[in-house]
Design a protein around this nucleic acid. Structure first.
Lengths: 220, 220
DNA sequence: GGGGCCAACTTGACAGCGTTAACCTAACGT
DNA sequence: ACGTTAGGTTAACGCTGTCAAGTTGGCCCC
């Protein structure tokens, strides 16, 4: 077991590595807290550092820059979203699964507004994917791909109308409708200009409308 | 005509006022250009000022702060959007009008991405409305209200299914679906993670799906 | 077991940001 | 002719993300 050439899981070198990982994690935690409390742009490197009693510069030994740090946080939350949706995967009927996934997605977005904003409402140079924390086309980590799969299953079962052939287009259709409700509510919910209705109620209605609008008509 | 108590449209005082308005307008123009070229957060007060050969401080004699300046720009574009949609008001069938409005809206958003981002994708403390440049509930200036009116007309004509009663909820349903497509495309169109389909094609499809999903079923 | 080394972390700074106080000046009203 | 004021400038403040250089403490190897 304790050969000389083993990949170190014990010993001083391993401890140092573990310590490094731990401070990395502490940085991420502190960043997430401030991020959620005050929003992205109000979260400064100095504030993150001082919360864990480090110097701002220390962060740069663990992350290339602020955007990388946030991108990594973002990727973690995205995986959390994916695994939340995954738990709905058990439902048989693809359409019902789309409904439930949509509701779970919207709830996630409305509960984690800061993260949602950074994930989907901010053009961010680099993708979440290239942190290697999220495996593209793995349904357990890539929520979009999971939706595409579900839609594809619906297509194969002939549940959708004949003008819908492309699983990506159809997935983007569903996703966009939900994202529109969630993101508008996040960006403008305090704007007196719009007389907002209860967002979850409208979202449920929206999903039903989308399903009814794409479903194949009964041959009766 | 030239009474002593007239509201001055000539004379030195009026000229000064006109000059002030003019430099105000030049600030707005310069801001818009940079804003469109480089995006919101990359547009600095100093850059705006130097483009019109002024000092940064000069801007603060015309606008309270950066956000106010951008909010005013935003309000102007919002009026432009409203009047673009207005030109579609001539179409008789409310549903067809919704279709055409949706397409025009999406085209506007995809063509004016920087403005769209600031208008609808950014939580912005103050509303566009409180600059008094956009009159709420005036369909010629308030594009949302124009949509509500159109939806209301459809409701009165009994074009929608019985579960749709609330013109605001229905308007938010349509708007959100469009906003979702436009905003996701603006934020993530360069992200290799998603295999994007042609946005306008998907938007047209989306509108048709929404209309089919909300329309009252033929009594045949 | 002591010398070299390297990684984690700090110090101190830089450039640029939005914004403000103090001043300056030319044109206005009286 | 003169005080006032509006429109503009100068210089600065406090903040941001970021980096070059220095410090320190523990590991590795001879």
């Amino acid at each position: 077991m304790s050969s000389l050439t083993e990949t170190a899981t014990a010993g001083p070198a391993a401890r140092r590595l573990r310590q490094k990982e731990e401070t990395r994690a502490r940085i991420l935690d502190a960043a997430r807290e401030l991020f959620v409390e005050n929003g992205v742009e109000a979260t400064t490197m100095r504030a993150i550092a001082s919360r864990i009693e480090y110097t701002p510069t220390a962060i740069y030994h663990h992350f290339r820059d602020k955007e990388s740090l946030l991108a990594e946080l973002c990727a973690l939350d995205f995986r959390a979203l994916a695994s939340a949706l995954q738990r709905i995967g058990a439902i048989d009927d693809p359409l019902e699964r789309v409904r439930r996934m949509g509701i779970a997605y919207a709830e996630f977005g409305l509960k984690n507004r800061s993260q949602y904003r950074f994930m989907f409402m901010t053009p961010s140079g680099q993708s979440m994917m290239d942190s290697n924390l999220v495996q593209k086309n793995n349904p357990e980590e890539d929520a979009y791909f999971f939706l595409v799969q579900t839609v594809e299953e619906g297509l194969k079962k002939g549940l959708f109308g004949p003008e819908f052939q492309d699983e990506h287009q159809l997935a983007q259709l569903f996703w966009s409708a939900l994202h529109g409700m969630v993101s508008l509510h996040i960006a403008k919910c305090n704007d007196p200009w719009i007389e907002w209705r209860d967002p979850m109620a409208t979202i449920r209605l929206s999903i039903d409308v989308m399903i009814r609008g794409t479903r194949r008509h009964h041959p009766a």
